[in-house]
Structures are given as structure tokens and as C-alpha cells.
Nucleic acid binder design. Structure first.
Lengths: 194, 194, 194, 194
DNA sequence: TATGAATGAGGCTTCATTCAT
DNA sequence: AATGAATGAAGCCTCATTCAT
């Protein structure tokens, strides 16, 4: 309350809208490094040229930035995945296009892993539900064999996320796409020879 | 854990080892409920008949108990997984026994993964390396087809963790074991019919 | 205070003096409601169509508006009290006119004392000094009996402020004036019968 | 969270119960100087040899210390005033004993004025209600003349508090007692000659 | 001048850890 | 050893004030 003076100000280079991006970028980085729980708002601010108060002009709390990040990601991937699935007429195409789109996204998004995102944001959950619905539709059309759609979705997601780590670590998008697709098409026996 | 009032006169004081166990048990419970960051040492102590200072006679820090807990988990699973793989003479047995052991462990342990397992504890990383080594050995023996062993390990882990979630949510261990095994043996086409 | 939407085109921009008044009016309201410490500059500005920076074109600080407000009050009462005393030829008139003027002011002003008047503003202190001087003069003229003028001033002020609370709470100005005057004229025995 | 080391500790001279008193004493001082609103918990702590966290071992907030202080005062004065009134058989005795007890209390309590206490603590309000009840009883017994008891209480309180300021500033307890008693007994005419 | 985002001191509070007993 | 009060760094956030536009 009532701070006495206020020393000469400093930086004021960034535009308003840019600051939001600055904060999001810093948050992306820090969350990736420390995880959600260990990250403090201060950590985020420190990774920024901004003052602590500025954070609160854009986000009410750590939760809110995190939310924003997750939704940003989900918002960015979902249309791509949707588009990838759209034209798929065969199981192989369905799989390959999904995996490729996801791995490409990951490869583009920069290595500092957006942290194995917790799967509970509304946007993310919606994304999964969407995938599962598409899988069910594909099963109904006969494009995919009938099976436990929930488990299959989970398996796809699990493989996608784990292999994405390898992509981030430098693996080729096409190699991982081929690997994952082959696995789901024909099991281990069908995998590309090492 | 222990009753608050002083135990009946004839009873021996808690031994040191018992106190350590008391703290670990409380920590297991509290960390599972709140996650690492949200848990305070006071929360752990409160779940105990001990005083706050006593905590530090047994653990150097909050990190240390958490560490101990994670390693305890890894320590508990690894032998089971190792045993599961040991006798496997066929690929199918190798997979099924691994998955079954893991899902059973998860089903028994209640909530083994408070915040979706951090994969960075030394013990956990060692567990992965061990799995990958076993896979490579199996490939060499011809039990598993030759392929990118790292990617295969990743895929196995991804599927195992995602389906484990379904087990926690009530799915049958055998059903998930069959599902995962079939997936890796023959791909989607081989999955049990829905 | 002023409507948020831009005023009709034909209307002249608010003049500087009007802005000052706008701010003072808003401050009067907000300080009265929340007290000094609980009031934020933003609260004051929010009660205004102006922007936060504009505040500082008119006042150097939050203190300054508050000061201005207190002095405004003192400035408003003092002439009325002075006038009230001016013509008093008898002790009774002196007292009654002072009390009446003060109680009337309080009754009109709504909540003149947000947090029970801090007695330390220069204007307020000057007001007291002036009252005491007048009392001393009146004693010298024989209008008031010779006594400890400082203590008498204090007693008058104490009674005036406490009864003012009752006026704010709905008591009649005349009743309180009569009560206070009678008390100082003849003590408890002279008070109006209940 | 998780401060890394913790530099060598320091002071640890005071006993537990003493610390509460230490804080209350500091609070008494600081509130008197700055008033309730302007005082921060930090101000109180700084007026103490204790660490910031220690404050919260004793009080949950600024409000709580303030409460404690007010109640402490009210608790200390009320019995004395009650005792003062108890034996009063005449109006003059009733007044003189009340005023004397109050002024003595103020004189003893040390100069750093416990700030013109806001009259809204439960204890303080109860004290007023008690006084008013005694006044009403005295009126009923004929010890005090029948009049507006609420207004009379207010007037007594106003005079008591204002003259208490003079006592704090060095005036004699007996002189102020005589002044106030005379005022209420016979009005200005009855006041001791200057 | 008016605007409103940026700034950062400083308020409040928690909690890992120490240490006198 | 066990205890639990004390410690103080550090988290969170507000808000008076400045300054580029």
C-alpha cells in the first residue's frame, strides 16, 4: 500500500498484445521444465522481461495461464487432426494421417516439450471425445475393425504421446508415423525392420 | 496411523523403524491425495502422532520422502515385471505377463500415480532401461521380431499407462491385458471383438 | 457521476474545474463508504468517467484528495459556526447557535465523519483553536463564566460529536440542540424531562 | 515454498506466553500512532524483535490483534467503572467516581494513547449498554434526574473521552474529574473558576 | 490533457526447516 | 530421540503512481 516514490521506470518496448504472448511463451517454457505443480507465478514472471504486476493484467492466476496454454494447444491441434481424419477411406490412412499430423505439430512446436499435458482441460477432453467418436464412426462404417473403442482411443493416445517424445528428441516424423501405423495395422510383426 | 492418546503402559515405545514406516504411510496417503506440490510437511505430520521436528530425524526434506515413496513403488513393480518376463518363451507370453503384472499392481495399489507418474526418478528410469534391455535381448533371441527397440519400449509404456487409467477406472485386468497383448501381437484386426 | 457513454456531440468537454469536482464528488462518496485506508484510487476513478492517469492531473496522491475533502468539510462548517456565534449576546444563544449549526450541517451532509473524524487536519485544528479563542473572548466579555477554556472547548466538542452520532442515527436537530444547550447551561438537572 | 537453506537462527530469548504480550504491546503502540486503518501487520512485526511468521502463531490477522487489544482495554476498564458506580448514592458521587476511575485508568495506561477507540467492539458496546442501564436505573431510583438516557450517556462518553485527552496531555486527574462532575451537576456556571 | 498499461514496492501469509528444551 | 515454537525466505497479489501514446 502506498509505496513512497517509484524509481525511474524502464522497459516499455512491447505492445500490449505482445505481452500476452510473451507471458504465454514464458509459461510454456517454465511449465515444460518444472511441471505445473512446481511452477510458481514468480517463475513465469522471471522468465519474462515484465514486472510482476503485469502478469496480473493478463491472467488472474497460475491456473489461468495454464488453462490458456492447454486450450491454445488443443485449439491448434484439433483442427489439424480433424482435417487429417476427414478424407481417410482406409484404416491405414486414418491412422497414418492422424499420427503424421500430431507428430508434425509436435515437431513444429519447438522442442521445449509443452509438458506431457494433463488430460483434463475441457478442450483436451473434447479432443479425445472427438477422436473416440470418429473411431466409433469408422468402426461402424467398417473402416476400422469393431473393438473396444475407448481402449483403442487410449492406446492410440498413449502411443502417440510416447512416440512424440522421441520426435521431440530428434526422431523423424515419417519414421515414427510408419512405426505407429504399422503397429496398429499388424502388430509387432508388421513393424519396419530395425 | 497410531492413536493420539498415549498407548497402554505395557506397550513398548515405537521403535525408530516403526516411526519411519509411520511417516511413509502417512506420506503415501497424503501425496496420493494432494500431489507433491500441494502437500505440506505439516499435512504429512498431521496424519501422524508425531511432532514436526521428528520428521527431520527420518528424512532430510520433503523431497526425500517423496523420492523414497517413488522408489518404493518402482522397487515394488520392477521385480514383479522382471519375474513376469523371466519365463516368457514366446512373444505373446512376454507381452501378456508384462501387462498383467503391471495392471495387477495398479489395481492393487489404489492410486499409484497421483500426478501422472513423473518419469524421471532414477528408479523409474532404470526400470525403463531394464525393459528395453530385455526387449533387445528378446529380439536377439528371436522371441520378439527385430524392430526399433526404443520405439517399441515407448509404445509399450504408452499403452500400458493409458490402459492402466482404465483399470483404475474399473476395467478388468484380464480384459485390458488381452486387449494390449492382442494389439501388439496382431494390430487392430486382432483385437477382441467389441 | 457522469454517464459512461460519450456525451452528445453538441456538449462541451468537461472543463478542468469540472473534472476536479467530479473526482472530489466521487472521492467523497467512496471515502465515506469505505474509509481512507480501504479506499483505493481505482475505487475513486471507477466512480468517475475518467481514466486513472487523469486523477494525477488533479491531485498528487490519494492523501491529497482526502486532505482536500477534510478541509472542504472544515471549510464548510467553520463559517457557519462562526456566523452562529457572531451575534450571540448570551451564553445560551452562543451554545444553542453553535450546536444547532453543527447538527444541521451533520444532518445535511449525510455522513460527514467516515471514520470518526481524525482531529489532526490543519483546517480542523484551526477550527478548534478558533472556537477556543471565541470562548475565551466570551469569557472575557462576561458572556460565558470564567473557567478552564481548554477543558470547556473539549467538553463542547465531545458532546457535539457524540450527539452528532445520534443526529445521524435519526435524532431531531432541535432536540439535540436543546439537550446540549441545557446541559451546558444548567447541568443534568436542567435537561428536558424525558 | 521450499526455501533452500535457512541461515543461522538468532534470538530465542522470550518465552511463548511473553511473545503474545510482546506483540500486543507493539500493536498497542503502533495502532496508537498510526490508527487502525493505516497500520499493517508488518508495522506491528517491525516493532517487535520477532520474525514475521511468529505473528501468525498468535493472531490470524490485524483484525484479531486489534480485537484482542480492544477487549483487553474494555475488560480492564469495565470492572473499575462498575465498581466506581456501585456505591454511588448521589448523582454527584455517581459522576465523580465514574470520571475519576476512567481518568485514572487513562493516566495509568501510559501516554501512547490507545487511539480513540472505535466504539464498535462487542466489549465496548457492552460497556456502553451497561453504563446506560446504570444511568436508567439511577434515574428510576431518583439518583439522577429523568432525561433522555441515551443522549446523556453519549454526552458523558463524549466529555470523558475528550477530557481524557487532556489527562494524557498532562492534566490532573482530580482537576478533570472536578470539571466534568461540576459540568454535569450544574452546567457551565458551576464550573470551577479558572 | 486524457488515457490506461506497466511498474514494482510492499502487504499478507504459508511453510520447510532449525533449535532450545 | 521427540517436541513444537520460532524463523524467514518466498509465494501470492494489490495498488499507488508513472509514462508512452
Amino acid at each position: 500500500m502506498e509505496p513512497k516514490p517509484t524509481p525511474p521506470a524502464g522497459r516499455r518496448e512491447l505492445t500490449k498484445a505482445q505481452n500476452r504472448e510473451t507471458i504465454l511463451a514464458a509459461a510454456r517454457q517454465v511449465f515444460a521444465q518444472l511441471g505445473f505443480a512446481a511452477t510458481t507465478v514468480r517463475d513465469v514472471i522471471r522468465a519474462t522481461p515484465l514486472a510482476s504486476g503485469t502478469f496480473y493484467n493478463y491472467f488472474k492466476s497460475k491456473e489461468e495461464v495454464y488453462q490458456a496454454l492447454r486450450d491454445e494447444v488443443a485449439l491448434a491441434v484439433r483442427p489439424r487432426l480433424r482435417a487429417a481424419r476427414a478424407g481417410a477411406e482406409t484404416a491405414e490412412a486414418f491412422l497414418a494421417q492422424n499420427f503424421r499430423a500430431f507428430f508434425q505439430f509436435v515437431a513444429e512446436s519447438g522442442s521445449p516439450a509443452p509438458e506431457r499435458f494433463r488430460m483434463d482441460s475441457p478442450q483436451v477432453l473434447a479432443g479425445f471425445a472427438e477422436l473416440q467418436a470418429d473411431i466409433e464412426a469408422a468402426m461402424a462404417r467398417g473402416v476400422l475393425p469393431a473393438a473396444d473403442a475407448g481402449a483403442l482411443t487410449a492406446a492410440l493416445v498413449g502411443v502417440a504421446f510416447e512416440l512424440a517424445e522421441r520426435v521431440k528428441a530428434g526422431a523423424e516424423v515419417e519414421a515414427m508415423t510408419a512405426f505407429a501405423t504399422a503397429l496398429f495395422m499388424g502388430g509387432m510383426a508388421a513393424l519396419p525392420k530395425a
